[in-house]
Structure formats: structure tokens, C-alpha cells
Simulated assay, not measured.
Amino acid sequence: MTYLLFVLGLVALFFGGELLVRGATAVARHFRLSPMLIGLTIVGFGTSAPEMLVSVQAALAGQPAIAIGNVLGSNIANILLILGISSVIAPLVIPVKKLWRDLGFMLLATAVIWIMLLDGAVMRLDGVLLIAGLVVFLVTAFLTSKVEDIEVGQGDVVQWKAWAMTLGGLIVLVVGARLLVNSSTELARAFGISEAVIGLTIVAVGTSLPELATSLIAAIRKQTEIAVGNIVGSNIFNIFAILGVTALIDPIPADPRFASVDMVWVSASALGLSILAFALGGLPRIAGVALLLAYGGYVVLI
């Protein structure tokens, strides 16, 4: 039964990802918004819904190792694993002129949470500051976004269908991720794997599967702005919103290893993506291979 749930979850993820990319692209065209903005907000935040659910539930259940490990592990997996796989399948172009501000927000969010974890806990006041950071990011993103000169053609999806596809895709992604996380966690516990490692790997990768499905499909459909914006927006949302909301519910004590080990990888992956974006203007296949090798090294380390 566990294996069946795993397969059903996988199918739901890729079906939901296809719906989400098609719907979000149609919404962007209708409102003449850039695919990058849609990727950073609707797609990026929407695909982070599983991380939000898992982290809040973990906090309420008194399991902070899974709550924090889920977010940090997801941010590592988003860049090293998901962008790695996506760029190996289809090299990604990163429009630095459009994304430099958002890469800066991602680096800022990473630095802020690292400083908070050095104290050994993310307190309620920290949660307020993180939520404030999210509000500043959203306001800045929409105020500085430019209307795209896009010609709306007869072949475009009708708007109510586009919104239905977008919302339906998000719901299917959340359900699929939940099925995969539950089944994978049961299998891992059967093999005696600790909760901290489960949070950093299986749960983190499991809740990042919507991002994987969405970015892969976007890359295949040549919607590279959505593929990259999805990951950057998701990483920002994971820190500002998920850890912010979780800390407001209940202060989160943090194991020292999060600040001394895992944050090094979170910061290195975020900084590495930014350097590649500015130096190469994207992620060629060789960069994707390097990202995948780095993720393999991280998994072996923990």
C-alpha cells in the first residue's frame, strides 16, 4: 500500500505541475505580466505550500528538527537538485536584469535566518521580522515589475480556465506531495533513519517535488523564467513566510548543527546560483551536473 501511495503521489505531482505551468503562463499573458514575476509569486509561493503544511504541523507536534530541517533542506534541494536536473534536461537562461533584485532578497533572507539560528532558536519576534521581510519583498516585486508587451492571441486560454488550471494544479501538487512525504517517511522510519535526517532529506525533497515537477515542465516548455523564478521565489517564501509563521505559532529551538553545518550549504548554494547567473547568464548542462554532484556530496555528508 505504501508503494502504491508513492506512485500515486508521483503521478499527481507531474500532472499538477503541467496544469500549474500552463495556467500561470496564461494568467501572465492576460495581465501582460512577466513570466518571471508569476514564477516568483504565484508559482514560487504556491509550490511551497507543502513546506508550509509540514513545518506548521511539525511545530504544533513539537518536532522543531523536522520544521527547520524541512525548510533548510528544501532550499538546498531547490537549487542543487531541482535546478541541477532542470538545467541538465534543458539549459536554463537566467535573465539577470530581471532577477538581480530577487537574487539579492534570497541572499538577504539566507543571511538573516543564519544570524537567527546562531542564537539557538527562532523566537516570535524573529517571526515578526521574517513576515515583515516577506511583505517588503512582495511590495517591491509588484511595484517594480514592468508590464510586458505581449500580444494576446486567439489561441490563449480563457481566463477562468487559466485560473482554474493554476489553482487546480496547486491543489494536485499539494496532495501529491503529501502522499509522497507520508509514504517516504514511513519507509525511512522502517529502516531506522532519524527524524533530523528525514527532515533534511526525505521530507525536504518530498515537499520540494512540486518545485521539481513545475521547474522541469517549465524548462521542457522553454518557460525558463518560470523555472528559475519558481525556485528563487520558493526559497524566499520558505524562509520569510514558513519559518516566520512557524515561529509565531511557537518559538522554534534549533539544533546547533543547523547553523554550523546546514546553513553553510544553504548559503553556498544561494551564493553559487547568484554567481553563475551573473557570470554565465544561466545554467548550462555542465553547471547542472556540478550542482547535482554537490547535492550528492551533501546527502553523503549528512
Rank of each mutant, 00 (worst) to 15 (best):
P35T: 08
A204D: 09
A132N: 11
G62N: 10
S55T: 15
L130N: 04
L130Y: 06
N182E: 15
P50D: 12
L143P: 00
S208V: 08
G282R: 03
A141I: 06
F31E: 02
I252E: 01
L209G: 01
A270I: 05
L8A: 15
M1R: 11
G169S: 08
G9I: 05
M106R: 01
R29I: 13
V172I: 15
Q57G: 15
A121Y: 03
W163E: 05
G62K: 09
D149Y: 03
L291E: 05
M165I: 01
K146E: 15
V128P: 07
V245G: 06
L107Y: 06
L276Y: 02
A65D: 15
V300A: 13
E51F: 08
I42R: 00
I275Y: 12
S183K: 02
N75V: 10
S267Y: 02
V174G: 00
L280N: 07
G281W: 06
V147P: 00
A109V: 09
E151L: 10
E51V: 12
I202Y: 06
A279F: 13
A247T: 08
G73H: 03
N70A: 13
S55C: 14
E151Y: 02
G282E: 09
P210D: 10
A12W: 01
L5G: 02
L291K: 01
A259C: 11
L40H: 03
L92C: 06
W265F: 14
G297P: 07
G69R: 01
S215K: 06
V158Y: 03
A58V: 04
Q159R: 10
V7K: 06
V158M: 06
E186H: 09
G17N: 08
L273E: 04
V152I: 15
L125H: 11
A213T: 09
L212D: 04
F15I: 13
F31Y: 15
N70S: 14
A259L: 10
E195W: 11
N78G: 06
G84D: 12
T166N: 05
G46L: 04
A290G: 13
G127K: 01
T224F: 07
D149S: 14
A254W: 00
A254M: 08
A109Q: 03
R22I: 10
W160P: 00
F105S: 04
D250Q: 13
T2D: 13
W160M: 07
E211R: 05
D119F: 13
A247P: 03
Y3A: 15
L212H: 04
V27A: 04
L40P: 00
N230A: 09
L13G: 01
S87E: 11
A24P: 03
A111Q: 07
F45Y: 10
I226T: 04
W163R: 09
P91N: 12
F6I: 11
G297R: 09
V71L: 13
L117E: 09
F6E: 05
G155N: 12
G16S: 12
V147K: 14
F142H: 12
T166L: 14
V174P: 00
F237L: 09
L167T: 05
A218E: 03
